[in-house]
Design a protein around this nucleic acid. Structure first.
Length: 103
DNA sequence: AACCTGACTTCGG
DNA sequence: TCCGAAGCCAGGT
C-alpha cells in the first residue's frame, strides 16, 4: 500500500476513545484534505484486519453516514457506549466530540 | 489505460 | 434543508 494509506491507518488508530472525527479531517491530517474517499476505502478494507475504530469517523455534516439497516444502528450504539450523545437522526455535536487531530 | 467503486465534500439552486 | 453535479483518492478488474 502507499505511504499515504499507511498514514491514514495510523491516524485512524489514534482517534481517542469518546471522540469522533470526519473522513475529510482524517485525510487532511494525513496530508491530503481531498482524499476523504480513500479513508472510506481504508475502512472497508482494513477495519477488521487491524481492528480500526471505524465507528469514530463520521461525515462533515457531523452525522453518521451509514444508512439504517446497513450499519447505522451499530455505529450509533458503539459511539453511545463511549459516552457520546447521538441524536436519532445520527447527528453528533462536533463542538463537543470532534477530535482535532492533535495528540 | 479505461472504467468502476465507496461509509466523502463542496457548491449551487 | 434537501438534492444533483462535479471533483478527488487508491485499488481492483
Amino acid at each position: 500500500m502507499t505511504e499515504f494509506t499507511l498514514r491514514l491507518l495510523n491516524i485512524i488508530r489514534n482517534i481517542p476513545y469518546g471522540k469522533v472525527v470526519t473522513y475529510g479531517r482524517v485525510a487532511d491530517i494525513a496530508g491530503n484534505p481531498r482524499a476523504a474517499r480513500q479513508v472510506v476505502w481504508v475502512l472497508k478494507i482494513y477495519s477488521d484486519k487491524y481492528e480500526l475504530p471505524w465507528y469514530r469517523i463520521i461525515n462533515s455534516k457531523g452525522r453518521i453516514s451509514l444508512k439504517e439497516g446497513q450499519g447505522f444502528e451499530l455505529q450509533k450504539a458503539l459511539l453511545e457506549e463511549e459516552g457520546i450523545i447521538v441524536e436519532d437522526d445520527g447527528s453528533i455535536n462536533l463542538r463537543r466530540y470532534l477530535w482535532s487531530g492533535v495528540f
